[in-house]
Simulated assay, not measured.
Amino acid sequence: MSAETPYDFIGGEQAIHSLVDRFYFYMDILPEAQGIRAMHQANLASANDKLFKFLSGWLGGPNLFIEEFGHPMLRARHFPFKIGVSERDQWMLCMNKALAEIPMDPRLHTNIQAALQQLATHMINQEVHDGIETSP
């Protein structure tokens, strides 16, 4: 018998689909997220599918992303996009709103939220010097 994972505790595949659907719903409607929304294609289906597959494995479920696309190499995959603190914060705004809608133990919610914050911060590839963004 294997140990339960965050994937199991939040409700498995159905919960991850719900989380990702709500994340992109918020990205699509929140004026505060229009900066990151503009980085995506008009149709969010592909992004939705990839985020679902990534989160599935990242949370301890099936490694769907790795099986289809190989190692996530998230920073490298996101490097073509200018990601600064503002973009990170927009992404987290949408994710935090989506996470709030998924029933889970408050401690698990806090841990997942903190881990996603670290992950989002790792994606930053622009530095701000005197109000001007530059690549590191």
Score class of each variant (00 low, 15 high):
residue 87 E to N: 04
residue 76 A to V: 15
residue 116 L to E: 00
residue 53 K to M: 15
residue 99 L to A: 01
residue 17 H to F: 12
residue 15 A to D: 00
residue 48 N to K: 15
residue 6 P to Y: 01
residue 90 Q to T: 05
residue 85 V to C: 08
residue 126 Q to T: 15
residue 96 N to K: 15
residue 97 K to N: 09
residue 42 A to R: 11
residue 51 L to R: 08
residue 41 Q to S: 15
residue 115 A to T: 06
residue 117 Q to T: 05
residue 69 F to D: 12
residue 45 A to G: 10
residue 21 D to L: 11
residue 8 D to Y: 01
residue 30 L to D: 15
residue 33 A to G: 08
residue 1 M to L: 12
residue 59 L to G: 09
residue 13 E to A: 14
residue 75 R to G: 15
residue 130 D to I: 08
residue 75 R to L: 08
residue 15 A to G: 05
residue 134 T to S: 13
residue 19 L to A: 11
residue 68 E to F: 12
residue 135 S to I: 11
residue 25 F to Y: 15
residue 91 W to T: 08
residue 5 T to G: 06
residue 123 M to C: 07
residue 76 A to N: 14
residue 131 G to C: 01
residue 21 D to I: 13
residue 84 G to Y: 05
residue 126 Q to F: 12
residue 31 P to G: 02
residue 36 I to M: 04
residue 80 P to N: 04
residue 25 F to K: 07
residue 39 M to I: 07
residue 27 M to T: 07
residue 77 R to F: 00
residue 76 A to D: 08
residue 26 Y to D: 13
residue 123 M to H: 09
residue 91 W to P: 12
residue 111 N to K: 14
residue 111 N to E: 08
residue 38 A to K: 15
residue 31 P to S: 02
residue 59 L to P: 11
residue 87 E to R: 00
residue 69 F to L: 08
residue 56 S to R: 10
residue 64 L to N: 10
residue 70 G to L: 01
residue 101 E to H: 09
residue 123 M to N: 10
residue 106 P to T: 10
residue 92 M to F: 00
residue 41 Q to M: 03
residue 101 E to G: 09
